[in-house]
């Protein structure tokens, strides 16, 4: 199957996904463990596997208000 995919169109999507995930990881890394709901590793997997919605879930529900 030869599908002509123009990668110039696709890379911004991948880059944005990566920005979301990396921002999530930085925020997780810096956070005090007590300020995170559940374990940090759980959120790493949710962000990695959940694409956009995983990152949204982390940013919305992952952190307790300081």
């Amino acid at each position: 199957m030869d599908i002509n995919i123009n990668w110039g169109l696709i890379w911004p999507i991948i880059a944005l996904q990566a920005i979301l995930a990396v921002t999530g990881f930085i925020s997780l890394y810096k956070a005090e463990p007590a300020s995170i709901r559940g374990s940090k590793w759980m959120w790493v997997f949710i962000i990695l596997l959940g694409n956009i919605l995983g990152s949204v879930a982390y940013f919305v529900a992952g952190r307790r208000e300081a």
Binding site: I13, S27, F59
Partner: peptide, 12 residues
């Protein structure tokens, strides 16, 4: 990080 993730999601 709202200034990163909210615009990123809209752009996506």
């Amino acid at each position: 990080y709202k200034w990163i993730w909210v615009p990123a999601i809209f752009l996506l």
